[in-house]
Design a protein around this nucleic acid. Structure first.
Lengths: 342, 342
DNA sequence: AATTAAATTGCAATCGATTGCAGATATAAA
DNA sequence: TTTATATCTGCAATCGATTGCAATTTAATT
């Protein structure tokens, strides 16, 4: 029946007795082709069930119309929101999105980035893993001027667009709020300090404390991986201090939740006895009891912004670009966990 | 300096005075190449900073080593878990994962699938949108024998591998549990019936009711989109019935949550006055008060299974395949919302 | 040493679309 | 009618890796 399973521009050309180049140009809406010719070609192409071989085109043009996304964990509300935003913009601009998760594992992150590079993605959007302290794999992109956008967990020493949350102000606002609510001995459960966002949240905390004239007690600071178990260990340790905290600023909602659950088991009431604020506004924070005050990060908008910036860069590859850091606003959402009942 | 920005197998061949085909075979570990030659080529390739042009290879071999994933909404715990599972398997087998969300929009779903087809993905994994009742876009794949795996929201009339949860038994177990806890007038808030999973959950509910000799009252059945607002409307309506429900089986946790919150506002206690069971085991369900009894779906495992099946199909394209439906077990997780206090 | 078999390597075509440049046709001006 | 100028179309090379088949080298056997 059909010799080629797929019709090519050559088949169309042969049928119409014209050159394949004309067909190619017509199908790409090249204005150099006259209107009647284009119409005819388009009609024939449709009749013949023509579908462009994008691989051939990619190969020839050296572009894949694909952007790579690398992030620690897909299955996390903040990150999946970012993906959602990226996908939305990318789809509208005709780009596919290829997604990989590093699981916060340095080796995997490296392999992923190399693989995306070999696959010739047009650019990548990346949030660095917690373990990552060496950035040679990233330089693979920057050295060849391949478009790259960081988000959330960024690398300061690499020159590229960056989309971050205002973690400093987030930390500041959270702590300030706890102080206003009467907190004096305010603890902080934070993440690894090699990651910028945790560094910034800590700085915000410290500055808010200092501004209020409150001392910073090192025994009130704990840094860990911010998962459920770590959170429980952290709160346990804090409650063994000679002076116990009367408020805690947690660097994520998961840890805040761990603390609340542990304290409830011990008969310590939140917010009556201890005030708590989290970070990230996970979906559960709104509905848990007590609902968790937190800092909202606009994940979806960040994803959209990142994709927009990346695609702009891809489309104007030649021009010199001034890399910028976009700081997305955070919002303090006050719920039950941090408000002492009247 | 460098004429070609990238070194090709021809550059390597020229340098070593051998044929490009030998280089190609050596780099692909073709056993027909002798060990010393391979070693030499590999060494030289590394020295010259060779990176295969995957686009060229894809073009030639007609494979992209990419699998497409289409699902309603990335930013939902169940789906992002599935993605996570898919990504894990795909990554280990050398496949990239290209992800798109349909937002439950039929037009977008169609375009996505067509685009994946044009991009020559090696296969797709798809969960159908709620609005989708026409499957011509899917046939694009099946007719050309392109590997396709459905998960969760599957299309019965299309012959392909399917990974589903045992929604029927899930619905049955949930309802049976409510009956055991003393429920008599058990309502059901379900999803659109054109979607198999909601159909099955309803069937499970009905059978459990019948088995217990309980009548099925149509006014106790509501079907909607299962979002937060719909859930609130549904519970509101149910509570206006002449005989009010004493238990509710909700087809997802979001709706269960809506019900709990609404009832709390009205001073009606869960589980004391009304028992509730949800579905999906969203992260919030465990930590909300009262914690929500629910049916756990193994999203991550489903993703892994789907990817495994798809990749197997891709790798043995020629052989005839008996399509199977894999029913993943569900687990009833009993929490506070459905257990009447002693 | 000659013959045969086995193990390696090379030749050259191929995948399908794109694109610079040359050639052809149509239109306008002289 | 001839010449000049736009417009349009076609030729042919090209992108880089893969692969069937032919050619060559090496090893084994007589």
């Amino acid at each position: 029946m059909e010799k080629h399973s797929e019709t090519t521009i050559h088949d169309i050309a042969k049928k119409l007795n014209i050159a394949a180049s004309t067909v190619s140009r017509a199908l790409n809406n090249n204005p150099i082709i006259s209107e009647p010719t284009r119409k005819l070609i388009e009609k024939t192409a449709k009749e013949m069930g023509y579908r462009p071989n994008i691989m051939a085109a990619n190969f020839r043009t050296k572009r894949t119309n694909t952007i790579g996304v690398v992030l620690p964990l897909i299955n996390r509300h903040f990150f999946s929101s970012v993906i959602s935003g990226i996908e939305e913009i990318a789809y509208n601009r005709g780009f596919a999105v290829s997604i990989s998760q590093s699981n916060d594992n340095f080796e995997k992150e490296t392999k992923i980035v190399q693989s995306l590079f070999s696959n010739r993605v047009d650019g990548i959007i990346i949030s660095i893993g917690m373990q990552t302290t060496n950035f040679d794999h990233i330089k693979l992109f920057t050295e060849r001027q391949l478009p790259l956008v960081f988000f959330d967990r960024v690398v300061q020493e690499i020159d590229a667009h960056k989309i971050v949350v205002d973690d400093y102000r987030g930390g500041f606002k959270a702590t300030e709020h706890l102080i206003k609510q009467g907190g004096k001995n305010i603890a902080h459960i934070g993440g690894p300090l090699n990651v910028n966002i945790y560094q910034d949240r800590l700085s915000g905390y410290k500055d808010a404390m200092q501004k209020a004239g409150l001392p910073i007690d090192e025994s009130m600071l704990i840094h860990n991986s911010l998962n459920r178990a770590d959170g429980t260990n952290a709160i346990k340790k804090l409650m063994q201090n000679k002076t116990k905290p009367d408020a805690i600023f947690c660097a994520n909602d998961t840890t805040a939740l761990s603390a609340i659950i542990y304290l409830r088991q011990k008969g310590i009431k939140v917010p009556d006895d201890i005030l708590i604020v989290g970070f990230s506004n996970e979906p559960f924070s709104e509905v848990v009891t007590p609902s968790i005050s937190t800092i909202k990060q606009p994940g979806f908008e960040m994803g959209k912004k990142a994709a927009d910036l990346l695609i702009r860069q891809i489309k104007q590859k030649d021009k010199e670009i001034r890399h910028q850091t976009f700081v997305m606003p955070t919002e303090l959402i006050i719920r039950e966990s941090s408000v002492r009942k009247g």
